[in-house]
Design a protein around this nucleic acid. Structure first.
Lengths: 212, 212
DNA sequence: CAAAGTTAATCAATCGATTAATTAATTAAC
DNA sequence: GTTAATTAATTAATCGATTGATTAACTTTG
């Protein structure tokens, strides 16, 4: 039964995603990874070859799907503002739901001395950013958006989300909400970020933001 | 001669700040830290007690001064917009210049399983954010700012800088500039971020942003 | 009974930390 | 001032613990 083996692999990857996210790559020992997943330590090497292979498996599982979503939105026959709206919403859902994963990604990217895996992510993330930038560039070209620094605007959008994600502790205090709590995150924080980002971008990008 | 000893300690802290920033806390071994600083490994424990003590020394050196700067700006007899302007400029100068340090701080804060030192930073950063938030709250109270989500607005400002700092590699490609290069960072990136953030906040916060 | 899956035991390497011995710097004695 | 005594600074060697990885034996599966 292939299913059972694949289920086990999936379970290990699930666990590793969380443990890597909580402890960092260096901080998560193979023994910890194994015991958290409830398997023998040797199984990690049996399935993934090495600790690095496990990290790669964690990354590759999620890495490509995000761009597919963005590309799909980009192709839709809607206004550039609507595209931006949907992209932000899609990104927000991804990032805040699979928060362990995105924390892991962000942390590994921030290391100057990186693993080979970092380049793997780097390329994919870069392409994601380019799609989002293109929407802003298109919007400026067709005259619906003001002339802004497209790249920096993207950086502000993504930066807001990553900051929320990676400084959970501090922001929980500032926002008066427990961001560790999945329910609060989903029902309070997420709508709040969404509203904020859209309102921020609306007043910055859209020319006709006086009438409403 | 006390100076010589203190110079040596300072040199070790300087080096540790960079190495921790590049490799992460777990990734930077005591042997590496020592050899990069050009001292015997035992000297680290002699001066700082432990690896953790060295990290604490790195953090404590910079941690308190930022708030002093912000508090000073907050007390000045200027408009809230001007306060915000100056705070952003001050923050930007700090963060982009001592980038290794701020990368280190952010990375340690993003770990769910943290060192005691993380709480030390957490408190200070939180207080910094509160001061900046207060400026926005004040501005809304005196009617010069629109009614916005003050906490989220702060998150966007800090988040922008955070993202620039921690995804250097990707953003260098997106911005078409080498952010590792100190000169370009100082003369190209910094003014560009500054202009972007101020222009973004201006259109979002200030009511009279039509005339100019 | 052959292949895949799983285990406990163990590998060398590296981790942070400490030791005891040595050198340099400071202080005290005269 | 010179020298002896005392403290501080520095070194190489080594500590036990833990790291990622591998082995060989064992169990399950098809």
């Amino acid at each position: 039964m292939v299913t059972k083996k694949e289920d086990k692999k999936e379970h290990i990857i699930d666990t590793a995603e969380r443990v890597f996210g909580e402890f960092g790559y260096e901080g998560a020992s193979t023994r910890l990874l194994a015991s958290e997943a409830g398997v023998n330590m040797a199984m990690l090497n049996y399935y993934f070859g090495s600790k690095d292979g496990l990290l790669r498996a964690v990354l590759e599982r999620r890495i490509s799907s995000m761009r597919a979503v963005l590309e799909d939105i980009y192709q839709q026959p809607i206004t550039n503002w609507q595209k931006l709206e949907r992209m932000i919403e899609a990104y927000l859902n991804r990032v805040l739901t699979n928060n362990c994963f995105h924390r892991l990604v962000q942390r590994e990217l921030s290391l100057a001395q990186r693993h080979d895996t970092a380049d793997l992510i780097s390329e994919h993330v870069f392409l994601n950013l380019k799609v989002m930038r293109q929407v802003i560039v298109d919007g400026m070209a067709d005259g619906t958006f003001r002339e802004v620094d497209a790249e920096m605007t993207i950086a502000s959008v993504i930066g807001t989300k990553y900051y929320l994600l990676n400084s959970t502790d501090i922001l929980s205090r500032l926002l008066n909400a427990d961001m560790q709590d999945k329910v609060q995150l989903e029902e309070v924080i997420k709508p709040r970020v969404k509203k904020h980002l859209l309102s921020l971008l609306k007043s910055y990008l859209l020319k006709q933001n006086e009438e409403k």
